[in-house]
Simulated scan of single mutants.
Amino acid sequence: MKFKKIILLWCFSVLLFSCKSTQLDSTKSTVLLDISNEVDENKFVNLKNYSNDFVYDMKYATDDNFLKEKVYPCDECFLRVKTVKSLLEANKTFLENGYRIKIFDCYRPKAIQKKMFQLVPNATYVANPKKGSIHNRGGAVDITLVDSLGIEVDMGTKFDFFGEEASHNYQNLTEEILANRKFLKEVMLQNNFKPFDSEWWHYNLNGSNTDKVENLKWNCN
């Protein structure tokens, strides 16, 4: 009987841990938190709890995306702590220059990655879920810039434009657009991010390719 109790307790603890580990908490803090107090660099946190200086247009929490359907329950931006730290520093530089980051996508569950790849089975634009995207690892952001009036800076194409014009290497653009892309890229490079060649909006935190692919979902409050 004692042995059975031990087994039951162990099974319950495993189940409890599993429940906790497969759901991200969308609860908002009543005050802004200090990211420097987070000691676990790999922990997933909600960016909205650490800054009010970002603009959000989370495309996959709407049907305004290439999937033509809402696939996130709500417009939260979860990232690993180390990603948030670098993103806050990058946004600080943009703010000093009269701009701020507008976010289209952050952490993405692997299940959503599978759906995207089914629609666009081209690894140039959508990572193969067998390998996993940096989005699935909590180390990638899809972003643009807005000015002090909240107007998007002209980057030449829309977000999630699947064509050569979205590439960093594409040069048949106006000087203004090339300068805008260069500004975004330089600041992100200075803050531990690297660009994704075929998408001007996509940036990966350096070293995040070795992090674990996750399929964590989140609740909505």
Rank of each mutant, 00 (worst) to 15 (best):
A123S: 10
V71K: 15
D154S: 11
D160M: 12
L189D: 10
N209V: 01
L47H: 01
N172V: 04
T144N: 13
K28C: 03
K182F: 13
K43R: 13
M1L: 10
N136F: 06
T27E: 10
R108W: 07
C19P: 00
S148F: 13
C19N: 05
C77H: 02
H202C: 04
Y170N: 01
K43D: 03
L16A: 09
I101K: 06
L88W: 01
F162G: 03
R80G: 00
N65H: 06
H135K: 04
S18P: 00
A90R: 02
F104W: 14
K4W: 06
N52P: 03
S86N: 15
F159R: 11
D142C: 03
M1I: 04
I143W: 06
P195M: 03
S13R: 01
F78K: 02
F44L: 11
S36P: 01
L178P: 00
F3V: 13
N192F: 13
P121R: 03
S36Q: 13
Y60S: 11
Y203P: 02
K130Q: 08
N209H: 11
K158L: 10
S198R: 14
S21G: 02
H168G: 03
N122M: 12
N169R: 08
T27I: 05
M58Y: 05
N219Y: 06
R108E: 11
F94L: 08
A140Q: 12
G138V: 01
E38H: 02
M116N: 11
C74R: 01
L205A: 07
I101L: 15
N91G: 11
Y60N: 14
K43L: 15
F3M: 07
K82P: 00
L15I: 13
F183A: 07
Q23V: 13
K82R: 10
N97H: 12
D25Y: 05
K130C: 11
T157P: 08
N204R: 02
K82E: 10
H135M: 05
Y125V: 00
K158E: 12
